[in-house]
Design a protein around this nucleic acid. Structure first.
Lengths: 188, 188
DNA sequence: TCAACTATGTTCCAATCGGTACAGCCAAGA
DNA sequence: TCTTGGCTGTACCGATTGGAACATAGTTGA
């Protein structure tokens, strides 16, 4: 058979979507094999550690994407208010207006959280910290910046839950608009 | 062997805790059998429909608890502001300050949402509606009441996610305090 | 007192699980 | 051209899955 893709980096986003859809336990090797188009042999060639290595790879991938597109722009922005707006756009894009689930959030609610505790914690801790940094640069005092940042992350995650529960993308869009407004206003 | 408990209603809360801890796919019959202390024979006597029936029973149980302790008091409160405060206390209790996960929220993020879509949707829809009713009675106009209610439910769910991800119960407590303050203030 | 019924533990089942072994395939370098 | 080594499909492994069957023990009503 011809060498078509054969790079871990090509398979990782597909794996991410599978884990998002089925969760860790629900993602069986057979559905992984089917949706990636890779036989078990290939899967274990790329991920000798099996499902666990697939999941950590996916989590690292997600972490890197957020670091590059969200955390770093927030931390190093010249105009923090513009960076915050940009974050909201990126997040809306990434989560497809709530149609897409946050894999890290889903893992956090599951008992697999324990197996990936470090990566799950870091994802949210860095998000909160980067947003707080931007909020401070926008003129909020440290305590207020931390509170606003935490509230924003909470609202985004909660909106993903509620939006999927009600099967209504408007929930997420409304929530994100509120988040942006409150972050930019800075007051209660 | 002696008849010890032998009621569905005795097993249901245990099942709920198992599903909360492991998710639907992760809750195998063997752990269910172990934690309930019931053999497979007994489990299938009480729940002929297998795991699916166990889950729907648990969801119905949760729905009834919230109807009785949260939704109904909110809808029929004489003093809506006191009812809102009572809701916050009930919720903090129920979720054990964030140490306990919202099973319905966890299901919403999983692909099992599709199998229990109606129960998942109703849980959140009724919560939002009951809270909005109380907020209207407290003097908010309907649009504002709906927005505040949605925001509160989102914040609670998001706080459960973030709290578990960071393994920090203070996250949930802070969030709930903010929710109560904002619901009672009524303004932005 | 004795059948009828309910609850329970044990056992078994086919299917599927995650994972391994391995033989061959292909493209590229020597 | 031949070799090499990364990739792939297939067959298979033991373990576990969700589920069903069944014999028996406890309870109950006649």
């Amino acid at each position: 058979m011809a060498k078509i893709v054969a790079e871990r980096s090509d398979v990782t986003p597909v794996l991410a979507e599978i884990f998002r859809e089925h969760g860790f336990e629900g993602a069986s090797l057979s559905v992984i094999s089917e949706k990636t188009g890779l036989g078990k042999g290939s899967l274990y060639h790329f991920f000798p550690g099996g499902k666990e290595e697939m999941a950590t790879t996916v989590l690292r991938d997600i972490g890197q994407w957020f670091e590059e597109h969200v955390y770093l722009p927030l931390r190093e922005a010249e105009d923090p208010r513009m960076a915050i707006s940009a974050m909201c756009r990126s997040v809306a894009d990434y989560f497809r207006s709530g149609r897409r689930v946050c894999l890290v959030g889903a893992f956090a609610l599951d008992d697999v959280r324990d197996r990936f505790a470090d990566q799950v914690r870091d994802y949210f801790a860095e998000w909160r910290a980067a947003l707080a940094t931007a909020l401070e640069k926008a003129g909020n005092d440290p305590a207020r910046a931390g509170e606003l940042a935490e509230e924003a992350v909470i609202a985004i995650q909660g909106a993903l839950v509620l939006g999927r529960a009600l099967d209504d993308t408007a929930v997420f869009e409304r929530a994100l608009a509120r988040v942006e407004g409150r972050l930019l206003a800075g007051k209660d």
